[in-house]
Simulated assay, not measured.
Amino acid sequence: MDNNKNIRVICQCLYVLNLPKQRFFWDDHRTHKLYSGRAIGLHVLAQLLQLKSYEDITEQLQAHPELGQIFGMTSVSGPQLSRETKALCTDTLQDLFYHLIGQIQERTKDGNGFSPSIGRLHLIDATDIRLPDFLGSWARCGSRKTGVRLHVRLVVADSDTVFPDKVIASTVNVREAKVSLELTLEDDVTYVMDRGYEKSEHVEKWLTDGIQFVVRVRDLLQLHPVPGTERTIPSSESAQTRILQDVDVLTNKTTKPARLVAFADETGRQYRVLTSRWDLTADEIALIYKNRWRIELFFKWVKQHLKLVKLHGSHPDGVWNQLFLSLIAFAVSLLLKLNLQTPKTQWQVLKLVRTYMYKMWEELENAVFRPPTRKSRGRQKVNGFGPSCKLPQRIILL
């Protein structure tokens, strides 16, 4: 991606994909109009603009002639888009997503991670997307639950930048522990997981392979302290965290000891986490687990700001493709933010991209770096009341 000021913002977005006029030999056999490259570009555009249906995509194409010049067609129908969404090759979309993630990794390789002493964190969790009971019967789990599950490994590159670098899509009947070994392969990062990924056999393998991890364990899991390994609990550095226990433990199914750190948060709720990071303090271990919440914020961001809560269709191929198209749109929006080198958040940049989508890139840059128009400190309160407010008068009852 470059900073050509004389092209439109939409062109800059699609320049990242480099796909609108590209044809794939196997996918586009006998396709005359809506090539795979065009379909992917239209879908990513729909994600960035948060369009709600195929009809909205077709209206965008007809309302903006510049789109016709970019995609090489002036109109497309909703049924065509629906058919092409199901016909897209999921492996192609997955490869495109990882290609964009590779660019993000290259741009953020100099980041300090969570902190210089802790390093990079990989947060692992899953989120569910519900499907209609009848049309989504192929993804049914039990008698009531129907949907798909997105297992994500989220990289904390620095305090402001997070992105998924590994994704496994499945139906909701695939439990988190079944895919945890596929998401924990590197030994130079720390994996942070919730209770769904805790399994004694996996903990044993991580300890054997030298994998760094912090995983919360269930309250019912029996842990046996190793004699002589209990550590003195110093006064907590954080006023919001109270360390309760710090000791090496074994489970009924493990032969290698792991470190147990038990702590309570500001509300008094207690947590027990197992870890292989003996080089950190108990406060740092608690802080690492508390930052697992950032992956929940990532899921919330994608569901709110991109089209991931309510999918366009319920066909299996279409569902898997829409999941990866949403992740591709997330990667494009993050690359735009990194390219602009702005302290604004990714959501602030995405809002401006939506506003200036059909304007020149220079106008978007001016909007991003425009100084705030408000120069005063605003109306200051005095003793809890604004300057124009009168103090309450005593009410006299006659």
Results as ranks from 00 to 15, higher is better:
residue 111 G to S: 04
residue 137 S to D: 13
residue 93 L to Y: 05
residue 155 V to L: 10
residue 342 T to K: 02
residue 122 H to I: 13
residue 294 R to Q: 14
residue 360 M to H: 06
residue 41 G to Q: 04
residue 43 H to K: 05
residue 66 E to W: 10
residue 349 V to I: 13
residue 109 K to V: 03
residue 391 L to E: 05
residue 288 I to E: 08
residue 378 G to F: 06
residue 319 V to Q: 01
residue 312 H to I: 04
residue 370 R to E: 10
residue 62 Q to M: 11
residue 66 E to F: 12
residue 202 H to N: 12
residue 21 K to T: 15
residue 30 R to F: 00
residue 64 H to Q: 14
residue 27 D to K: 02
residue 161 T to K: 11
residue 145 K to M: 12
residue 54 Y to S: 03
residue 150 L to D: 09
residue 169 A to K: 09
residue 341 Q to E: 10
residue 348 Q to S: 10
residue 180 S to Y: 06
residue 167 V to A: 06
residue 312 H to N: 08
residue 306 L to M: 08
residue 142 G to Q: 05
residue 175 R to I: 02
residue 53 S to A: 07
residue 89 C to L: 06
residue 93 L to I: 05
residue 229 T to Q: 06
residue 147 G to I: 11
residue 54 Y to P: 07
residue 89 C to P: 11
residue 252 N to L: 11
residue 347 W to S: 05
residue 52 K to Y: 00
residue 143 S to A: 15
residue 370 R to D: 07
residue 10 I to C: 11
residue 379 R to Y: 13
residue 3 N to L: 14
residue 377 R to C: 04
residue 334 L to T: 07
residue 335 L to Q: 04
residue 297 L to P: 06
residue 131 L to T: 05
residue 264 A to P: 11
residue 126 A to P: 15
residue 392 P to D: 01
residue 373 T to Q: 07
residue 257 P to I: 03
residue 159 S to L: 07
residue 323 L to H: 00
residue 356 Y to E: 07
residue 97 F to S: 01
residue 387 P to Q: 05
residue 315 H to R: 05
residue 14 L to R: 12
residue 227 P to Q: 06
residue 210 G to T: 08
residue 329 A to N: 03
residue 71 F to I: 04
residue 71 F to K: 07
residue 328 I to F: 02
residue 194 D to Y: 15
residue 107 R to E: 10
residue 369 F to W: 12
residue 318 G to R: 03
residue 204 E to W: 00
residue 297 L to T: 11
residue 339 N to R: 02
residue 78 G to R: 06
residue 356 Y to H: 10
residue 190 T to I: 14
residue 21 K to W: 01
residue 261 V to M: 05
residue 78 G to V: 03
residue 119 G to N: 07
residue 29 H to W: 07
residue 207 L to Q: 13
residue 16 V to N: 02
residue 176 E to A: 13
residue 258 A to G: 07
residue 139 A to R: 05
residue 163 F to V: 04
residue 397 L to D: 10
residue 41 G to I: 08
residue 47 Q to S: 02
residue 37 G to D: 04
residue 295 I to K: 10
residue 371 P to K: 01
residue 17 L to Q: 09
residue 379 R to A: 01
residue 111 G to P: 00
residue 39 A to M: 14
residue 309 V to S: 06
residue 369 F to E: 01
residue 366 N to R: 13
residue 156 V to H: 07
residue 34 L to T: 03
residue 29 H to P: 15
residue 225 P to M: 08
residue 22 Q to L: 15
residue 319 V to H: 00
residue 309 V to D: 03
residue 302 V to A: 05
residue 239 A to Y: 11
residue 232 T to Y: 12
residue 112 N to Q: 06
residue 214 V to A: 14
residue 75 S to V: 12
residue 212 Q to W: 00
residue 194 D to E: 14
residue 189 V to H: 11
residue 12 Q to R: 15
residue 380 Q to T: 09
residue 304 Q to L: 06
